[in-house]
Write a protein that binds this DNA or RNA. Sequence first.
DNA 1: TTGTAAGCGTTATCAC
DNA 2: GTGATAACGCTTACAA
Lengths: 340, 340
Amino acid sequence: MTVGIRKIAQMAGTSVSTVSRVVNKSGYVSAETRQRIETAIEALDYRPYAGARMLRGSPSKVVGVLLPSLDVPFFGILGHSIEQAFFKIGYQTFICSTAESPAKEATYVEMLLSQKLDGAIIASSRQNIEPFIKLKEHNIPIVAVDRPMPGLTDVCVHVDNHKGGTILAEHLLGLGHRKIGIICAPRHTEPMIQRVSGLTDALRSHGLEPSDIRYGSEHSLHSCYRLANMLLDRHGDVTAIVGTSDTAAIAAMHAAIDRGMSVPARLSVAGFDDLPEASYVLPRLTTIYQPIAKIGETAVQRLLGMMSGDGPFASEDKLPIRIRVRESTAHAAICESQGT
Amino acid sequence: MTVGIRKIAQMAGTSVSTVSRVVNKSGYVSAETRQRIETAIEALDYRPYAGARMLRGSPSKVVGVLLPSLDVPFFGILGHSIEQAFFKIGYQTFICSTAESPAKEATYVEMLLSQKLDGAIIASSRQNIEPFIKLKEHNIPIVAVDRPMPGLTDVCVHVDNHKGGTILAEHLLGLGHRKIGIICAPRHTEPMIQRVSGLTDALRSHGLEPSDIRYGSEHSLHSCYRLANMLLDRHGDVTAIVGTSDTAAIAAMHAAIDRGMSVPARLSVAGFDDLPEASYVLPRLTTIYQPIAKIGETAVQRLLGMMSGDGPFASEDKLPIRIRVRESTAHAAICESQGT
DNA sequence: TTGTAAGCGTTATCAC
DNA sequence: GTGATAACGCTTACAA
């Protein structure tokens, strides 16, 4: 059924080794033999089978990318940039949506291992490295993205989330805000924790505390909307809310507007990530930009370095971030004068 | 370096065939031999190599999914649902972002073919089937999603886009709108074409024509924003704009609001797809809901059917859609009274 | 119940 | 320049 190297040899009236030489452009082959072989290859649409090559020890040119979920924009963009970067250099990518489940992560690791991958890029929701240690045991090079995986790999490509929180806090403080609420979801992931601590650290250095911090376990607009309402119920005097993601911030905008607080006149709102939806909403969202696609591409570079044996064997890349000031934040003085 | 079946046999003091029997749970093995083998497998963390199994004719349990791009929400959600459905039944998925380029599509096909896949799910931006015919020649079962690929496969899972356009038109007509503009982007894809023709057919059956149709080649908010401005420059008297995607509709909302036309009081706006961002914007967007995740899951079912040999060998699945009326559309009478 | 051996598609070694 | 042949990890007759 399948056409292999021997069928080509047979058709071209030569031996498998000569065909192999032609296919791999290695060793000497006479012009006419090469011609006959190429004709046969064309005719039978022959193509060497990667799996058999690996039996002989060649790299699989296959990598695994394990991400929490492809259907949230952040990981969609990240996964896309990783996949495209690998494609450019002839690598195939198994993208795996682990859906936050350690059991799924473990199953994926099994599947990937039995496919013989050359390397892996991982972002796991929990800091739990357990499902991945088998990859490490099999000496598969691993790069962490978006969040470090201590104990698993020392190579991580991400941004300084703590600093991002600080920048946001200082932006709001500079606008005169003193009563600031925070919505953090999903609660347990490292970037979110860092953002909250960057925020609170900056406030404290000004002798302030967040008026309220609401934690949620879900990323969804709906769940963040409820958190925002709880926050506003208890602390109606806040003049600004920061969401640890653009989604959380957008949810806060909805909650505020639905209860008649105008944004930014009465309430300033800021987010994090600068996803496309940040500029979809009206007023457009002030947020921290992070170079998602660049993160993916850098992670691929790092993995390539590890796979080719030359370093770096340990490195933490923190890519630059910056604030994007848009229309959702304004001076607090205005708020007071229009306050509810 | 790598641990294979013979190393296990050696360690357990038995033969490779017996190990194979244990691994595949086929044939008889005595309890004690099995025990020794399982111990060895555990100790050496052995796992059969999928590529070698395929040499012996077993299915690869690998499928290819070729989509225009993972970083746009629609395909992110679709790709995610497909990947998850395959994961559930033990299949690995190569997700390939073809980025609208036939050259990339062809390269992907080559790569996939040399990995020996069991089947493929494809959505190609252009109707160009050329890059994929090799898959067909190699008898790889193919299912089209979101848009049909005539000549390549007769199996397609999608929605009735024409009907969606009709529903939208009738919704607006029912609200008294008579001057309706359309923004269509990206212009050449089948679903977009269908949506426009559904819209115009419905208008014509009421003796009307669209006031203006603006076509764009890019999906982006930015480019659609410019289209919307062109439309409003030329036909400031429209009372409603339909975007053939939620992004196009959101861009229209921005353009309208930026020139002081309030939505929906002065201008009604409707979109298509019901992506998350449709409920992010304020006012929340009236749009046509389509069951994206369900489309992915159904496509997987169809492909499974084809791979297992029992039908269907030709079938077009049109999944149900419905309109989601939100706040961005209102009665046209209100518009006239507040008109510019 | 277990072992031997052939063969899947490929490449590398070595002889011609 | 070219062609046998062994080996990679695995499954499956077939023999014992």
